[in-house]
Amino acid sequence: MRRSLETALAAALFAVVGIGGVVYGARSWMPPLASRHGAGIDAMLLYLLVTVGGLFLTGYLALAYLIWRGGRRDRIGTRLASHKTEVVLSVVLGLGMAVIAEGGVLGIGMPVWTEYFDAAPPADATVIEVTAQQFMWNVRYPGADGRFGRTAPQLVDETTNPLGLDRSDPAATDDIVTINEIAVPFGRAVRIRLHAKDVIHSFFLPHFRVKQDAVPGMTPEMVFFPTSTGSFELACAELCGLAHYRMRGFFNVVSETQFRAWLSTQAATR
């Protein structure tokens, strides 16, 4: 039997999708990296992109071949595979997949994950409190005393005191509050305590491979280490309402001196 044009086209379709997909994917898609633990996350993603890319190509080419080949037969080839063939193929492929998937988690993923969450924050880390609200990031530094002043939701006034800072608390007097702008000194770790005032937001620094939901009633902490200076964007990654798409902040990694100068300007303008 002659292979019909359509069979050839269908086989070609799947072959093109397989090859085209790998070609399209084989670019550097991620935003440039700017954090230490992010190298681990990128390694995890690279491992997945390479292994999955290989499987993807193999799968599509196999499908294309089987269509190409099957379209030319007048009678079936092998009718029933033996039970043994079925079991062997399943065990081999199942195990192979388990090794690729779980191997990635255990070999690359888990160490990165554990280090990111378990590492004790260095004593010299810059401590910052970020409180997300519709649709901005309230940023607070503890000031010279290194202690955050007390806050209370009853004291919140959206125009004068968005964090509900208790001015009668001595620890609160030197707290520095900014909006949508975080500065950190280069060469030190960053330790962020995350709050949310109203709904769930998500603190997403694409260049730092940092993402953490800000959930009302919870105070998750993040510790990470910037590896390059510059101004980076902070995005909200959890649907939080109408202006979710432009809930934008800046995360500036600057030199120690610039950082001190910036902090004192912020303290003065308060």
Binding site: M44, V105, E238
Partner: peptide
């Protein structure tokens, strides 16, 4: 495989 992997998901989630 990407999304089930917690480490990769940190960047890819949402």
């Amino acid at each position: 495989l990407f999304l089930g992997n917690a480490t990769a998901d940190m960047q890819l989630h949402d």
